[in-house]
Design a protein around this nucleic acid. Structure first.
Lengths: 190, 190, 190, 190
DNA sequence: GATGAATGAGCTTTCATTCAT
DNA sequence: AATGAATGAAAGCTCATTCAT
């Protein structure tokens, strides 16, 4: 029940300013001096909270990732049924990305940049891997290497989001239902 | 049968040097002076062929993309049967990326960077879209928006490649067969 | 009586350093890295005050021109008599240029360079035009297009200064008196 | 009666190309590669005729100066009467400059640049000095240091030309007559 | 004579970072 | 905590010049 205010106003202003700039100009184009104007703080202030640009980018990634995870978790984990969670998890991630396209752009840039030196391909080590592993272990999904399912599940939701954001091709609710259904058919036990 | 020599030796040296460096250090880390040493050409020569770093990166993307497309086409288009091409196309792209991980890294960085002005999500508009559309039109695949299939097909192959390259988790031939089979089940007419 | 300090120490150091270098090596020869040493500031500092080398040169012209104008004004405007001012204005400009030859060199280079976009011929629109126009209007000088007088008056003082500075031929006080007298004879009413 | 073709077609193309570029972009802005396009010759060709950019600029100055001198001489030296030549020399120089403004711009830039390392202020050592000295020696003009007359005569014609070229203020034939008359009044014996 | 690809020193400018206030 | 002037290494790029063809 702890709700500690973990981030100061300035920090959040810096994160949001940087998000804006990275989405527009990329990492390289996001200079500290531009950030100074966008976030309306001085360089000194940025270096008070972050030890370097690298440090800022890494903490910024953690910040937006925890925001996303909290959202998904709050939307999905209330349900018991695995299949329902299977559908929701895909849909909600798609919704988050298409409603926060700058976060998607930032994530994709970060993951593929030298900042992310562990080079994890899109959180696949994270909650989604666990979720799909759970499905296999509890026999909702057919036995298989979980990586196969990560590739299908995460791959399709990320690609669909990018098609929406960069392509401006809208997938309707029913289109997405169809897509997830096809995934489920391939992966589910029955 | 002679194929026009479209690229000079120097150009190719520059492309290969840049590929090496972008994979190692990212776009920002790939300075012109580093490239000078890696490709063993002078700065002047780079600027003789390319009007700017931007221009180099864009042309480099086209170069490696056309290399990839030529490879896929030569490996896949010899077959008549749609289902066989469906399997081959996925497998060969996976093979290409896992055997040329630097190209994968470069593509992912490029696509999500401001260099890629149009921000087209990975080949979305390219040969794969056409191939899947053909499947729908000729009724090998169930009727659906082609974008749904692009998301599933391309999303999974790219994600699987990244899992291999960044996660060092190997998907065996049989694992991949299984994956493609699940996709086929979801998408095919019968 | 305090005069607002319009320029910071650094700015003035940059202006003086640049004056030294332009007089010696010309615009092209005045590289930012040389200026860095001459003015004892970092490149960053120069670009903190000026947006580009162009901008520096333009502001530098304004700076030295306002210095000159303030000097002339303080030396000349104390007198009432038009003829006296006519002599003084010529003499004081000659003195300023021959005592500050670097300013003269800089002005001549600047005025004839592409930095000086409008290409206004030396102060043509400035205080000297007004002064000669006043002479015509108040009938101290014979009626004529003021440009005729500008050409004679400004032309002779600038050329005489250049003869002194570049030709190392000294015009004595009496020589100059003679020259101005000849101008006055041609231009004055009586 | 010798009429040796002193300049090859290519040389003249280079001079004219360079004149165009210097007038538009200044010395610094006139790069060899731009000149290559403007004059439609290769860099190699330029370096066949000129040992360096410096050399080109100096020879170019000589070329256009000799053009100008030949013109003035042909227009003026046919007359016997000193006063007539006094008027003509001023008028014809004015006409030449206003009809060839690029030559004026080039001269002014050259004279005030480090290329002209003798820093002679506008040809004052040349034909005009001799002409005015002749006037003094032959007692058409009042005794005085010839530099005084150079300053008045050359200064006014150059300034008037610049006022026309850069100002776009036209001095009519009669205006100019008036100006020269005032000079003559100041300088002539009677 | 003529070409233009190739060179690399040196240019203008940027930008992450520091530190006195 | 907060500021922003100052730094200087290093970036992208230019350009006079060379030389094999």
């Amino acid at each position: 029940m702890k709700e500690a205010q973990e981030f100061s106003e300035k920090e959040i202003a810096i994160y949001n300013g940087a998000l804006e700039l990275v989405a527009k100009y990329g990492f390289h184009g996001t200079s500290m001096s531009l950030l100074t104007k966008e976030a309306k703080v001085s360089t000194g202030t940025i270096y008070h909270y972050f030890s370097s640009k690298d440090d800022l980018m890494k903490k910024m990634y953690c910040y937006f990732r925890s925001q996303l995870e909290a959202y998904i978790s709050s939307q999905v984990d209330v349900k018991e049924d695995y299949k329902e969670r299977y559908y929701l998890r895909w849909q909600k991630l798609y919704l988050y990305y298409t409603q926060h396209p700058k976060v998607l752009v930032f994530f994709e840039q970060f993951i593929n940049s030298p900042y992310n030196f562990e080079r994890s391909p899109h959180h696949f080590t994270g909650a989604y891997f666990k979720f799909l592993k759970e499905g296999i272990d509890k026999k909702y999904l057919k036995p298989a290497k979980p990586e196969i399912y990560v590739a299908m599940y995460m791959g399709s939701v990320v690609m669909a989001s990018k098609i929406n954001v960069f392509g401006s091709i809208l997938l309707e609710e029913t289109d997405r239902e169809l897509l997830i259904n096809k995934l489920w058919v391939g992966m589910s036990q029955v």
